[in-house]
Design a protein around this nucleic acid. Sequence first.
DNA 1: GCGATATACTACGAGATCGCAGTAGCGTGC
DNA 2: GCACGCTACTGCGATCTCGTAGTATATCGC
Lengths: 134, 134
Amino acid sequence: MLFDVWLVSRATFAVLDTALAPSGLTADEFAIYSVLTSTDAMTPSELARWMAAPLTSMSSYIKRFESRGHIIRVAHPDDGRSYRLQLTAAGRAAHRSAGKLFQPVLEHVERSLEGQAPTVRAALQSLRNAIPLE
Amino acid sequence: MLFDVWLVSRATFAVLDTALAPSGLTADEFAIYSVLTSTDAMTPSELARWMAAPLTSMSSYIKRFESRGHIIRVAHPDDGRSYRLQLTAAGRAAHRSAGKLFQPVLEHVERSLEGQAPTVRAALQSLRNAIPLE
DNA sequence: GCGATATACTACGAGATCGCAGTAGCGTGC
DNA sequence: GCACGCTACTGCGATCTCGTAGTATATCGC
């Protein structure tokens, strides 16, 4: 079963990476931008925990995004060691244009599932809860 | 939904990578070794297509596995450009010892799913078929 | 209030991933 | 049977990922 997870995710990433390529974002990056649009002001640690990545990788991402001018750091009100991340207008624009490329892929998948989408979604949810969080 | 795929796979990889760490294999590598144990004699291209990875990455993997003494190349009977991959005894041993570390994680997940495992598996299958193969 | 310990992040470097360009063998049309 | 295009793979180099070690701030015990 975990095997199937592996296959599905490899295929998904491959497809999304090529679909999103023209926008200059990878699938991973698109996901991060998506989180940042929905919940503004996350800290690097929260983000790292959330996507199950090492904090060091997160650091690299942030540096990259920052150098693109897509995010800015804003001071954390309660913790001087940390800071919060916010998408800039340019970042939101990049996310939107990547979203336009993302949409057709999602639609294709949902159409191929022929109404099974809710079942699949539910299954993914259960699976997500079943993975030990470390 | 593709979002959930992303989250699930990130979490899965993270957990498996740490679980398998003592064996010296990553989750990706374990998966590849698993394929090679079940179907002996695959070519690099087949393997790459199967796991939706670029052939170049496959090339790197093979080099790495070879330098570990875990796989050998055997001549392809019909095609001089290609060759086939086979696990060596050492490779199979590595796979087996990684399998011992893999098992508890899988069991934990299945137990957490409380009988829903077949549903989830089926959902993953449908999803896999719904991803365009490029 | 102050030392000890824990937490949030970063610098750096090793190794992994993968795109581009190349080589070698295959297969087809003629 | 030979020129052409096609496919299988590799070398190299740019970039990404992430572990180790370090710095800065917070928190806890007293």
